[in-house]
Simulated assay, not measured.
Amino acid sequence: MSSSPAEPQAAYFPIRVVSNETGVNAITLRAWERRYGLITPKRTAKGHRLYTEADIHLIRKVVSLLERGIPISQAKSMLENGTPEAEPLASMPAQPSQWHQYRARLNQAVNEFDDAALASVMDEVTSFFPADITLRFLLLPLHQQLHEQMSTPLGGARFAFFAGFLEGRLTSRLAEAPEGQTKGTLVLANTTQEDALELLLLGIMLRPLGVRILRLGGLVPPADISAMVNELTLQGAIIRITGHPNDQQLQQLQNLAAETGQLIFAIGHNQDQTDLLRRKGIVTLSGDLQQDALTVRDVLTGIQT
């Protein structure tokens, strides 16, 4: 499926802008073009892709269908056949979306501590959807749901079970080389005793954006992160910190930023700590993992260019 012919004065947008506008990363956009012929962007003399407003509108239609759990191949057929685009989730009828069904199956597997059922559902989902879409519409919502249920009987155990399963599944993916041109290498480390699954998920979302991740397991002191960044001449680190760092922790973070002279991104802090952390030389992230991945990519690109 190609985009509608553009007017001579139509505006064109590079893939980076389209990715930011639609929430679909560049690797996925290129895959949709190659594998499904979903969109045929124009090319510059150097081969760079350029998209029109009509392309962006079409991509948003596809995302709307994906939100309902419709695989990309089926979404393409629906759009080609003129099927009305999906309604927003808030206005959908009572029939659950495919994502809701997948989430219900995963939730049942977690409730029963059934790792085989978890693996079966995950294998099915990842055969139809790319990793960033699966994270956005399935894994992150379920992770949040389980986190909110931690105070219920066995809630903490179920959350830990799901987090452990995901950690095992995703860690091997993190070790794979990033797709496309590498924009930099970052250490991924947890400096707290708290759950680090969101940190791992952020690392996974950075891989298709061309960022190489070196993940350190367990609790890692900032001094060790500093030594690793300096020894390997890396571009920096993404660290999980506590919500309200005390004076000693703040000093350690300031030392980490000063000793490396590189980018130190942080998640896990409360938003009222943002200004203080920035004054310590820390690049604060919002907690919206989709946006945070784009922020890390953009900051790395800006530093290198």
Rank of each mutant, 00 (worst) to 15 (best):
M1Y: 05
M1H: 01
A6Q: 08
P8F: 02
A10Q: 15
F13H: 09
V18Y: 08
N25R: 02
R43E: 02
T44K: 00
T52P: 02
A54Y: 09
A54L: 04
A54W: 01
D55A: 10
D55W: 10
K61G: 11
V63F: 01
V63N: 06
S64N: 04
I72R: 12
N81T: 09
G82M: 12
A90C: 03
S91I: 00
Y102R: 04
A109R: 06
E112R: 11
F113T: 05
D114I: 06
S120W: 09
F128W: 01
I133Q: 04
T134K: 14
R136P: 00
L139H: 00
L139T: 01
P141S: 00
P141C: 04
Q144S: 03
H147I: 06
Q149W: 09
R158P: 11
F159W: 13
G164D: 07
T171G: 05
T182R: 08
G184I: 01
V187E: 08
Q193G: 11
L200E: 04
G203C: 01
G210D: 09
R212K: 14
R212W: 10
I213R: 06
A223M: 03
A223V: 05
I225A: 09
N230S: 11
E231C: 09
G236A: 05
A237Q: 15
G243F: 11
L250D: 12
Q252G: 13
L253Y: 08
H269Q: 15
Q273F: 14
L277C: 05
R279L: 11
G281S: 01
T284Q: 09
L289S: 00
A293Y: 06
L294V: 08
G302M: 10
